[in-house]
């Protein structure tokens, strides 16, 4: 019996070694992935960038750091040389806005010489640069408010336009583009961007598969608002047959998803929130709650991956949300 068992183990080991030839190449390089319709996702940078390309020009949702912009433009130039029209920022995080200045000076031609624009100057909003080049740089008004009225270490914010209602919409490259404000989710200035004909939603840091959400309590974020935003996202999405494909979602970080991916992510946030709420009701302190490990079953999937929050940071943000009057 023992020999039989050992022989089985040996065969299993051998088959596993044989299968290892299939191991996937690590692909951290910059790639422009076609999502569907007019919409692409730049993958491999610190953040995902959504790129809509059409007959009129190029629309970006979020921008990578300035060192990455030239390589990103090279990839886009394989598809178009039309000008940059719009940059929409989903929220105020340096990693999501730091390429604004460089892109704002590329409104006339995408293939313009980047070096000729010189280094970005000034430590304040440079609305004129984008406007002069015909580029609209848009975010929710709370992004601008947080930039001027709260503490942060972000050097500059390049915006030409803000919106303060629940939505803002416009028509570009043959499709309606709707920007929805998601109050008090990751921050209080979050936007999601819906490309209606392409049927793609750019969700920013409201949806970050493979890592815990970064709930920024200091900038108005909360777990309750995040669950509401995820529920809204699920309402907006129409799945394809057998709960697959249909509307696609570009996350702020991580892989492209569809409805069921957002549902699983919402379930995780909701369940952990309810566990922590119950522990608070039991009279536990934050330290005791962290020791109780309420995220144990999610840590191997979400905890601290891709530079995202650790389980302790996630628990602390939820605890703060649940114990602070909004």
């Amino acid at each position: 019996m023992n020999k039989l068992l050992q022989a089985s183990k040996t065969i299993l080991l051998a088959t596993l070694l044989s299968a290892s030839q299939f191991l996937l190449a690590q692909d951290n390089e910059l790639q422009l992935l076609h999502v569907q319709g007019n919409v692409y996702m730049l993958s491999g940078a610190e953040v995902n960038v959504t790129v809509q390309i059409g007959e009129e020009g190029v629309v970006f949702v979020d921008t990578p750091d300035e060192d990455t912009v030239p390589a990103m433009i090279n990839l886009i130039q394989e598809l178009t040389n039309l000008p940059v029209l719009y940059v929409i920022n989903t929220h105020l995080d340096e990693a999501h806005i730091s390429g604004n200045a460089m892109l704002s000076r590329m409104g006339y031609r995408l293939n313009a010489n980047l070096a000729s624009f010189g280094p970005p100057g000034g430590a304040q909003a440079t609305a004129i640069a984008g406007a002069a080049a015909g580029v609209t740089l848009l975010a929710h008004e709370n992004v601008l408010n947080r930039f001027y009225l709260t503490d942060h270490n972000i050097e500059r914010l390049d915006l030409t336009s803000t919106y303060f209602m629940d939505t803002k919409d416009f028509y570009q490259n043959g499709e309606g583009i709707v920007v929805y404000h998601m109050p008090n989710a990751h921050t209080d200035g979050d936007s999601i961007v819906y490309f209606r004909r392409s049927d793609v939603i750019s969700a920013g840091d409201i949806f970050t598969p493979g890592q815990y959400p970064d709930i920024d309590n200091e900038r108005g974020g909360s777990v309750q608002g995040l669950v509401e935003a995820l529920n809204f996202l699920i309402e907006l999405i129409v799945p394809g047959p057998m709960a697959e494909a249909g509307t696609y979602v570009v996350p702020g970080h991580g892989r492209i998803g569809d409805e069921i991916d957002v549902v699983e992510y919402r379930n995780m946030v909701y369940i952990v929130m309810q566990r922590i709420e119950a522990l608070i009701d039991d009279g536990m302190s934050l330290r005791q709650i962290i020791s109780a490990r309420p995220t144990l079953d999610y840590d191997t999937e979400f905890g601290g991956f891709r530079g995202g929050p650790s389980s302790e940071e996630f628990i602390t943000a939820i605890h703060t949300s649940l114990t602070t009057e909004m």
Binding site: S18, L24, A25, L33, S43, N48, E244, R255
Partner: peptide
Amino acid sequence: DHPPADAPHTWDGFSTAHFE
């Protein structure tokens, strides 16, 4: 090749094969 890591996932996944 298999798709890049950040490409969408499906119920069935992406399969390649050889004979051995």
